[in-house]
Structures are given as structure tokens and as C-alpha cells.
């Protein structure tokens, strides 16, 4: 059994929470630069130029990319031969608290009814999967509320099929795209059950931007949704243009013979993710 000190986890989470809020990943920067070069509309080019300028200013380390520094979501893969001394959840939670303090992140978490702020961005959303081996990996996302609010889960019927999945994704982007801070990433989760579809969809956001799924059917689904979403004409900041989405990531699992669960997670252009490996 490998023992991982809680402090190692806490320190890594705190550093990542700060880092992702100030440094837009190189893949996102490249995707936005490519989109800008392809945009015929001067307004869309202006918007994408401001998005890139914003990333440059944030990287100086004073101002986060977005004032909504996000709800921290941790997808943890814990080796069955590893244990975090002091407790995994406590270590991740303390990392979020410390990162919030050190990085001047906004206090963005509140009670759902009284709306009283928790004051330190805890609790984070923590998903744990046990995996073979003695490693520990955490995909940390800082998820903005504007794009999250426009996301959807639906229980389609088996008859709806692949076309139904495409329609739901395009409808979701069409209805909520303007509010979700485009250009967007779309995470599409198909199968499992209600909550598994949502988890699958969100976890696809941790993938390298725009890399097609290994499964051919999913890769085809991703390409079709991306093309259809970019025909909506919403464009950067909703002011019109070709670039409503930069990429679509899809994942699937087997499901009940009666069901076709589908989740569509919208992600804004301030895509904040880092994978921690300990």
C-alpha cells in the first residue's frame, strides 16, 4: 500500500486552482487564434482578439481570466493500492480553500436556500473512481456558473437514437449559447444513467481540446454536432460569426434497455483545467 501525505495533495490542488485561473491553456489559445483567422466578421474577430488579450493580461498574474473563478470540480482517480493519509476529501477540500486564499479567487459557493456564502469556495465537487495501481490523478476544473446554467440532462427514448443526441446538443447550444460565453466547448455524455451521463459529459472537458474520441461512432457524432452548432451563427460573445463552438467531446457507456440518457455540458472560452498526477 502506497501512503500519500495529505499535504502533497493539498499543495498540488491549491497550486492548480490558482494556476488554471490565470493561465489559459496553450491548446485553447491556439484554437481561439485559429478561429480568429477563419472569421469573416470584423466584430467576431474583434471579440476573439479581446479574448486573447484578456488571456495575456491574466497571465501577468494580477487578474484572473474571469471574475467567476469557478466552482472547483475534481475528478479523482485513486489507485486501489494507494491511500491518502489524513483523508482524500479533506486534502482536496483544504487545497481548494488554500488556492482560493492565495490566488485571490472569488468566493463563489453558497447555501442553495439562504444563499449565504461559504466564504472559501468549499465544498468542492469531488468525484472519486478507484483504478488499478498505486497512483493518484486529479483532473481539476474551475467551472463557471454562466455556462453550467445552460447545460442539460435529458432522458431520451431509445427510438431517438443518434439523431436525438445530435438534436439535443444543437438545441442546448442554440438556446443557451449566447449566455454561456461562446466560443464554447461542448461535453456530451451518452448512456449510463441520469447522473453517469452528466459525469461523463463533464469529464470529457478534461480531454485535449478537439482530439476526436477513439470510438468512430463518437468521433462522427462530435464532428456532426460541431458542424451543426457552428451553423447556428451565434458566434463569439453571441454577436454573430462562424465560431460558436471550438470543439465537441463525447463519451458513452452502456445503458438500460429502456433508456437513452444524454447530458450536454456547455463550457465557456475561459476553459480552466489541469491534470495533477502524484
Amino acid at each position: 500500500m502506497r501512503i500519500i501525505p495529505a499535504e502533497d495533495v493539498t499543495r498540488a490542488v491549491a497550486e492548480a486552482a490558482v494556476d488554471i485561473n490565470y493561465h489559459l491553456g496553450p491548446e485553447m489559445v491556439e484554437a481561439i487564434e485559429r478561429a480568429r483567422a477563419d472569421e469573416p466578421s470584423p466584430v467576431a474577430r474583434d471579440v476573439l482578439g479581446q479574448v486573447l488579450e484578456n488571456a495575456r493580461i491574466a497571465a501577468e498574474g494580477t487578474f484572473p481570466l474571469c471574475q467567476d473563478t469557478g466552482l472547483m470540480v475534481a475528478f479523482v482517480e485513486l489507485g486501489e493500492q494507494a491511500r491518502v493519509e489524513g483523508g482524500l476529501n479533506a486534502a482536496v477540500t483544504e487545497g481548494v480553500r488554500r488556492g482560493t486564499e492565495e490566488g485571490y479567487l472569488r468566493r463563489t459557493v453558497c447555501d442553495p436556500f439562504s444563499r449565504e456564502n461559504s466564504g472559501d469556495n468549499t465544498p468542492a465537487v469531488i468525484h472519486v473512481d478507484l483504478v488499478p495501481g498505486d497512483g493518484l490523478a486529479i483532473d481539476l476544473l474551475a467551472k463557471g456558473g454562466g455556462s453550467e446554467n445552460m447545460s442539460r440532462v435529458a432522458m431520451l427514448t431509445p427510438a431517438a437514437g443518434l439523431d436525438g443526441v445530435v438534436e439535443l446538443a444543437v438545441e442546448t447550444a442554440g438556446a443557451g449559447g449566447v449566455n454561456a460565453c461562446p466560443p464554447l466547448l461542448l461535453g456530451v455524455g451518452v448512456g449510463g444513467d441520469l447522473e453517469m451521463a452528466a459525469k461523463l459529459a463533464k469529464k470529457t472537458l478534461a480531454r485535449p481540446i478537439g482530439r476526436p474520441a477513439d470510438d468512430e461512432r463518437l468521433a462522427g457524432l462530435e464532428a456532426e454536432i460541431l458542424e451543426r452548432v457552428n451553423e447556428l451563427g451565434i458566434g463569439p460573445a453571441g454577436l454573430g460569426g462562424r465560431t460558436t463552438a471550438l470543439a465537441v467531446h463525447a463519451a458513452a457507456l452502456p445503458c438500460h434497455i429502456a433508456s437513452l440518457p444524454v447530458a450536454v455540458v456547455l463550457q465557456c472560452h475561459a476553459h480552466r483545467h489541469r491534470r495533477i498526477e502524484l
Binding site: 484578456n54 481570466l65 467567476d68 460565453c181
Partner: peptide
Amino acid sequence: GVIGGVAAL
């Protein structure tokens, strides 16, 4: 409308 997500700018 202000462009969403250009908060540092």
C-alpha cells in the same frame, strides 16, 4: 452587453 469572460480586460 460586455463580452463575457474578458474580466481581466
